[in-house]
């Protein structure tokens, strides 16, 4: 079977077989097929394939499915008959859906421990920040990374909180110029660390349909 070289037109053949072409496009394709045996044969083949695929599709019990959907939603539970606990969060937000915020809440002891590591690393090797800035010195208490700007991290409690945080503070006090670090500073340092490790995986923000969800509203 020789193939037609008009790729754009051939691309429309499955849509003609499906019946989803506009009248104008369908007319254009039919006019072309009148003089192109290859496309006429391809359309015939596509119609056979579509018929097969349609026929091999299962017969669904729509009433039962509708009832099942409404029952599951009324009970406010996810339908997890597939395998409970296995479906990743992405199933609720499949590819293309809005990504969750990049920043996640991190326990303070982890922040502190990571900051300690960062300090040790920064002492061990000559450190050069991006664009010539010193990322260690920049986020001071009066810097832009104030605690009020980082709602994803709990606001610092006075006194330093956990033993892990206290240990980290001791380590920081021993380091000239770093003794004033707040939790926001620690987080900023962590962010810098992440940047250095090139682990950024954020997706660009996405436009969402302006619909307010009403869970269980069915």
């Amino acid at each position: 079977m020789t193939e037609c070289l008009n790729e754009d037109l051939r691309d429309l053949l499955p849509l003609l077989a499906h019946g989803s072409l506009s009248a104008a496009d369908a007319g254009r394709v039919r006019a072309h097929m009148a003089g192109c045996a290859a496309c006429a044969a391809e359309l015939s083949l596509l119609q056979s394939a579509a018929a097969h695929l349609e026929a091999s599709a299962p017969a669904l019990d729509l009433a039962a499915i509708t009832q099942g959907v409404q029952t599951a939603l009324a009970q406010g539970r996810p339908a997890l008959r597939v395998v409970p606990g296995e479906l990743p969060a992405g199933a609720a937000a499949p590819r293309g859906a809005a990504a969750p915020p990049r920043r996640t809440w991190v326990p303070r002891q982890y922040l502190a421990a990571a900051a300690t590591i960062l300090v040790v690393v920064s002492l061990a090797i000559p450190f050069t920040g991006r664009n010539g800035e010193d990322p260690v010195a920049a986020p001071t208490a009066t810097g832009p990374a104030a605690a009020t700007d980082t709602p994803s991290v709990p606001v610092a409690e006075s006194g330093g909180g956990t033993p892990g945080a206290a240990a980290a503070r001791e380590a920081l006090v021993a380091t000239d110029g770093l003794s004033d670090l707040t939790d926001a500073d620690l987080e900023a340092l962590l962010d810098e660390l992440e940047t250095l490790e090139a682990t950024v995986s954020a997706e660009p923000g996405t436009m969402r349909r302006a619909i307010v969800n009403t869970p269980g509203g069915i």
Binding site: A64, I65, V69, L73, L80, A97, T206, R208, I211
Partner: peptide
Amino acid sequence: QDTFVRAFQSLDTFRAD
């Protein structure tokens, strides 16, 4: 059925594009 339940439960993640 599960597909519809998932979809209805997460309509706020449905993108207009």
